[in-house]
């Protein structure tokens, strides 16, 4: 018979990253505003698997994220976390400052069902914000890119594999629900994480490829519609009429399909390095939409 796992508020869990590191989180509350879903605090520090930090050291370290997740199922399945101890110190002062955010699109409004309501409605019409155990408030409509101030966190409930991803990298890539929450609440990447992303500007058809280390941009490759590529980095922020993206990893609400692998990024940047030996293109090349519209 399977062992019954008894889990209670205060428990501290360890999650192994699979790369020789591990980190910790603590189950600190049940949020009545989210049907009593457990809330955890994930600590920022990662340790080598061989290290054995004391529970008091772990829970006094810096908190990276507050998340709603099912603590029990993650400890029952392989690949998930396991309990390492407990502490009565829950850091509730920190939790009281955390604000949870969710989006709505008014498609659930009462009234007659119509074709127009089933269409792709503006997803930023409603935005709910709450603190743990307090009623939610609708602050919508909101504008994407206007970040919710203060300690804001995605308030949706994470299934355990997503929570594992969050513990390992600081963010999740695949979202089915709340796909656009990252336009309102900034993603955070742990300082050691390499992230590779790509997006196309639908108006200019420029394809951008990015490599971030932690929150910082390390390299950007721009593929122009004519097939030419430009490679930019903090050491070479301007080339061929293009300029390096001046934001951080979390400044763009990446969609699930925009996360690309390291290999894909390298195949593009390699191509770029080969091409850079060719003569430079014309200097008056049409710049990206952001430059064109901003009159830069």
């Amino acid at each position: 018979m399977a062992k019954r796992v008894k889990i209670k508020i205060g428990d501290v869990f360890c999650q192994e990253h699979g790369d020789g590191h591990k980190s910790y989180f603590q189950y600190i509350a049940d949020d009545s505003e989210k049907d009593g879903c457990p809330v955890i605090r994930i600590f920022k520090t990662r340790y080598a698997v061989s290290e054995n930090p004391g529970i008091e050291d772990v829970i006094s370290s810096e908190v990276g994220l507050y998340v709603h997740t099912d603590v029990v199922s993650g400890s029952e399945f392989g690949g998930g976390w396991y309990k390492v101890g407990e502490s009565a110190d829950l850091g509730l002062d920190g939790l009281a400052l955390a604000r949870f955010v969710e989006l709505g699109d008014k498609s659930g409004d009462e009234g007659e069902w119509s074709i127009d309501k089933l269409s792709r409605l503006d997803p930023y019409e409603e935005c709910f914000v709450w603190r743990c155990d307090e009623p939610r408030e609708n602050i919508g409509p909101v504008n994407p890119g206007d970040w919710i101030a203060g300690d804001a966190f995605d308030g949706s409930v994470y299934l355990w594999p997503k929570t594992v991803e969050l513990i390992k990298t600081g963010y999740i890539t695949q979202r089915i629900e709340m796909a656009l929450i990252d336009d309102i609440v900034k993603r955070r990447a742990w300082p050691w994480v390499d992230s590779y992303t790509s997006l196309i500007d639908p108006l200019t058809k420029f394809q951008y490829y990015f490599h971030f280390h932690g929150d910082n941009l390390v390299c950007e490759v721009i593929e122009k519609p004519d097939g030419n590529t430009v490679c930019l980095s903090p050491d070479k922020p301007i080339a061929d009429g293009c300029s390096l993206f001046d934001g951080k990893f979390g400044d763009i609400g990446w969609r699930s399909h925009e996360f690309i692998g390291k290999e894909k990024f390298e195949s593009v940047s390699d191509k770029c390095e080969q091409a850079s030996t060719a003569p430079a293109g014309n200097g008056g090349f049409l710049r990206g939409l952001r430059d064109r519209l901003c009159g830069r």
């Binding site: 503006d122 504008n143 994407p144 890119g145 336009d183 997006l199 500007d201 639908p202 108006l203 951008y208 993206f245 934001g247 763009i252 609400g253 990206g288 939409l289 952001r290 519209l293 901003c294």
Partner: peptide
């Protein structure tokens, strides 16, 4: 329609 340009931060 509404469209948000995430790089230029223009809506």
């Amino acid at each position: 329609l509404t469209y948000f340009d995430r790089m230029a931060r223009l809506r």
